[in-house]
Each structure stands twice: as structure tokens, then as C-alpha cells.
Amino acid sequence: MKNTRVLIAPNAFKHSLNAMDVALAIQEGLQKSRLDCVCECFPVGDGGDGTGDLMIKKHNGSIVSAEVNDPFNRKIISSFGLVNDGETAIIEMANASGLHLVKPEELDPLRATSFGTGELVKLALDKGVRKIVLAIGGSATVDGGTGILRALGIRFLDAAGQELTAPESLTELASIDVSGLDQRILACEVSILCDVDNTLVGDHGSAAVFGPQKGATPDGVKKLDTSLRKFADVALAQTGIDMTLIKHGGAAGGVSAGLYTFFNANLVNGIDFFLDFTGFTEAVAKADVVITGEGSIDEQTLHGKGPFGVAFQAKRKNLPVIGLAGKIPLEQNEKLNQYFDVLLAIGNGPTDITTALKYTEENLIRTAWQVGNLLAN
């Protein structure tokens, strides 16, 4: 009997394991089982933290390191990747403007900016790139991308002509001076990988949904939403583009809306772009069964998350799909069942979230071992 070809294509398990470590744990479990299998590890990203690193590695890209500003204008060493013979830069927003760069007690999206990410963009332009891929997950900012825009030469001015830099100060915005914009960015194809479809403002906007995760109090959320509305109003008057209507515009604290409006950036579904960019279809073509997963799989997964992108491609080839997660729905879900033949929660018993995160690797290995034994029968 021929061996089973298993394609292991999980997303990261947030706050626990990155996507590659998840894939390796599943592979270990399968190899310990009775299943005679050949495994291919193909960790995926949908725009979240770590997506850029995966793309750089898939393309055997080179890393460029540089000193830039963190979300609070402190100097740090950051980096980005170059692939396709230096034609394409892959930039992780989290590398310069990420939550992981900030201590929990320092979180303050009223002041944090994406300027450092803009510095990486400028450095990529200095390298002569023609395409920029921006993975925006894991940011500490809710600045509408104004930090990135400032790093590329755009100035945000109050009525007296004074430059505004902090997100909270955008309530005083009167005009946007684009005369100093680095024109090289307009000749560049910019793609922003989005894994959410939130708009810029309102109850489902970037401040309301993502502000609290980044340290905003209820009052802070209101201030940020007001700032972003003001930004949108002034931008509409000057560009004719209504930032509040842009699908995906609220991703990463509004970076998507800002860069779409002033750089003509392409806002793309993160997982679809990733799978195309990394040649996932070739891997699926060789597989007999596909295993994917992330921390939680539920109906939200169907809105552009990594496991859905993987399952969608697998189902086009009529392949069985197994989803592993820390958490799955209690009730059967017809929509999920169209794409996942089996959904398994990996937990080994009732426990608190801290303990569950601690034992993610062991739980993945055990569950994959059991899956392998079942497939071997």
C-alpha cells in the first residue's frame, strides 16, 4: 500500500506557537503514529504577525537590517526582506511598529505611530524595489497609517500650519500637505495583506475593535475614532476618496485606508495573496490529505483567515481537510462543514487559558498522533 501524502498547512496559534512550530508539532505526531506517510510542512500566514517571514523564507530571500523608530520614536534595529532578485520588498509592520516591541504598561495608541514602518518602506525604495508587500498584523498603532505617510514626506497640519504627529492630535487636522511625498512610492506596486474587513471608523472600526487590544481605554477609543474621522474628512475634501467606505480600511489601526488613499495601495485578502505568492497550489496537487489549524476555528475563520484559505484550495481538489484548533464551535456548523471534514479541539481537559497555551505543542503532537492512527486504519 502506498504511503499517504499529508500537506500540513497551519496558521500560527496566537500567543503560543508560530506557524512553522505548529506544522513541525503536527508532523512529529503523525510520524509517531502508525500511518505510513510523507509529510510536507507548509506553514501559512494571512497577514498576521509572522506572515512576512514565511514568505521571505519560501523565496529564499535576503534580509536587510536597519535602525528605525519604534512606535514611541525609540531607536531599534529592524529588518525587511528582499525577494525576486531584489524586485520585491516584504515588510512586516510588526518589525518596526509591533505590539511585541512595547511593554504592556507602555501601550498607548493615542501616541504610538507607524513611522518606523514608513522608514522601512523608504529604505526599500532606496534599494530600488518595484513592488512592496506589507504584512500588517501585530501592530501597536491606531494612527490611520499617518506615521508611514509622514516617513514618506506627507505632512499633517493644523489651522496654524503646525505639524501634527500623534494620533490623538489629528482632531486638530486642517490640511494635508503632499508636496513632499517621495514620488518613488507612486511608481511602486504596494500590496497590503489584510485578514479583517473592518472599516476605518464606527462601532466596527479600527479604534473600537482594535484599540482596546493596543491599550486604549473606552475614552481613548472615542478620541481615536474622532481623530480618524477628522483624518477621513480632510482626506475626502482633498482627494475625493472617502476612507470610511473602504473595505479592509480599518486593518492595523487604519493603515490600509491611509495607504490606499495616498499611495493607491492594493488591499488584498492576506491568505489568498500568501498562497499564490508561495506556490501553494503545487503543494496541494501532490497531497492526499490536508491538515490545517490555528488557535480558534469558528465561523469567523470563513472571513479570510488562514485555515479557510487552505481548506478552500484543498476542496477545489476534492481533498479531505482536517482542522486542529485550541477552540472549535460546540454546535455543528454547516458552513464550516463544507470546508472541514473534521474539526478537532486539541485540549487535554478543562484548564485555564495560560495552561492551554503552555501545552499547545504537546497537545498538537498527541492529537496528530491520534489522527495518524485513525488514518492508518
Rank of each mutant, 00 (worst) to 15 (best):
Thr217Ala: 01
Ile136Ala: 09
Ala207Gly: 08
Leu336Pro: 08
Thr51His: 06
Gly128Gln: 00
Ser97Gln: 10
Leu123Lys: 14
Pro71Met: 07
Asp233Thr: 05
Ile297Gln: 01
Gly137Lys: 05
His204Lys: 15
His100Tyr: 14
Val234Asp: 01
Ser139Phe: 06
Lys14Val: 03
Gly128Asn: 00
Thr355Tyr: 13
His15Leu: 13
Phe115Pro: 10
Gly81Asn: 03
Tyr260Phe: 15
Ile328Pro: 02
Gly304Glu: 03
Leu99Arg: 11
Gln213Pro: 09
Val83Phe: 07
His248Asn: 15
Ile328Trp: 01
Leu152Ala: 08
Pro71Tyr: 01
Leu30Phe: 07
Gln332Asp: 14
Lys32Ala: 14
Gln183Trp: 00
Asn95Gly: 12
Val310Cys: 09
Phe156Ile: 02
Glu67Pro: 07
Ile77His: 12
Leu181Ala: 01
Asp197Thr: 14
Ala19Phe: 05
Ala235Trp: 09
Ala94Pro: 06
Ala19Met: 02
Gly349His: 01
Asp341Arg: 03
Pro329Trp: 00
Leu344Cys: 09
Val133Gln: 07
Val255Met: 15
Leu149Asn: 03
Leu107Cys: 11
Ala140Asp: 08
Val178Glu: 07
Pro307Ser: 07
Val190Lys: 04
Val22Ser: 09
Pro329Cys: 01
Val342Thr: 14
Leu343Tyr: 00
Ala216Cys: 09
Leu170Phe: 15
Lys222Gly: 10
Ala66Val: 12
Ser139Ala: 12
Ile322Asn: 01
Pro109Asp: 04
Phe312Gly: 04
Ser206Pro: 11
Thr261His: 08
Leu101Val: 13
Thr301His: 05
Asn95His: 15
His303Gly: 07
Leu99Asp: 09
Ala345His: 00
Ala9Val: 05
Ile176Trp: 00
Lys58Thr: 13
Ser114Met: 12
Phe340Thr: 06
Gly52Trp: 09
Ile346Asn: 00
Phe274Lys: 10
Ala207Tyr: 03
Gly347Met: 09
Gly147Gln: 10
Lys327Tyr: 11
Asn264Leu: 11
Leu319Thr: 05
Trp369Thr: 10
Glu40Asp: 14
Ile241Gly: 02
Lys131Tyr: 03
